[in-house]
Design a protein around this nucleic acid. Structure first.
Ligand SMILES: [Zn+2]
Ligand SMILES: [Zn+2]
Ligand SMILES: [Zn+2]
Ligand SMILES: [Zn+2]
Lengths: 131, 131
DNA sequence: GACACAAATGTTATGATATTACACATCCTT
DNA sequence: AAGGATGTGTAATATCATAACATTTGTGTC
């Protein structure tokens, strides 16, 4: 189960869970120096494992990481992210129609998909109003 | 028009157009040292302009750049990329249904989208067969 | 417990990607 | 010619990520 994380994994997970916005690996490292972490690799290794477990997602367009918003987000399904460039808030959603359309394209083109990234950058409702 | 590129912009554009796979900014720089380019910024500035013009796309999941496959790819439309992790080939396509679904989500959530990234990593038909 | 194996850790160094700051040149409009 | 917008050259620095190696910890088997 996801309960038996190692010390470093748990530290990184706690940091991401408590964050209001995506964090870079180095930001995580800085927040964990007080807990004894010293090298980027300690964070990257934990992130790799947490991502495998589906507890953390990497945002490619940000080079940053975010805790999964769902209780048990299965890796299988296609996840889309809406990322606010002002406040950093990330919303995570999935859409079967989008998944079907992309699956249709890959199937008809003989493309074998491994991982799909959908990231919408912009402004969330709160921040768009303020503009 | 797109014809009056500056020297550096034209050099970068030519390099990307002739490439078989996406190139990183530093790879472009290395290929253009013979033409007098010396600093990363010369490449990044050209890439920024070319991206604005819609002649080049940035692949977020690769931190790399690719020449637009379409004659006149308007920035407006939503573009998806299928990227082969073996041979590097990139196919560019768009899908109105996907666009509508994502637009629907953002509209209903008050999210104002600025830029959307869709990247499918995997293996192209040619490479998937060889596996 | 002793052993063997897999997984995780600690540490140093290095590689790869991207931007800031500043001085100068070029082009275009008035 | 003056002014502004855009592009250029250069050095320095910031940010993101991995390689290599030695060591430790957890886990299952005997
Ligand atoms: Zn999730
Ligand atoms: Zn916001
Ligand atoms: Zn295009
Ligand atoms: Zn291929």
């Amino acid at each position: 189960m996801s309960a038996d994380l190692t010390r470093n994994q748990a530290l990184v997970m706690k940091t991401l869970s408590g964050a209001e916005a995506p964090l870079s690996a180095y930001t995580i490292l800085d927040r964990l120096r007080g807990d004894g972490l010293r090298a980027p690799l300690q964070v990257y290794r934990a992130l790799e494992k947490l991502t495998e477990l589906g507890l953390v997602h990497r945002l490619e367009s940000l080079n940053a990481f975010v805790a999964c918003a769902h209780p048990n987000c299965h890796e299988q399904e296609l996840i889309a992210f809406a990322i606010c460039e002002d406040c950093g808030k990330v919303e995570e959603f999935s859409d079967d129609v989008v998944k079907d359309r992309l699956d249709g394209w890959t199937r008809s083109h003989g493309f074998r998909p491994a991982k799909t990234t959908i990231e919408i950058r912009g402004n969330c409702g709160g921040c768009a109003g303020k503009a």
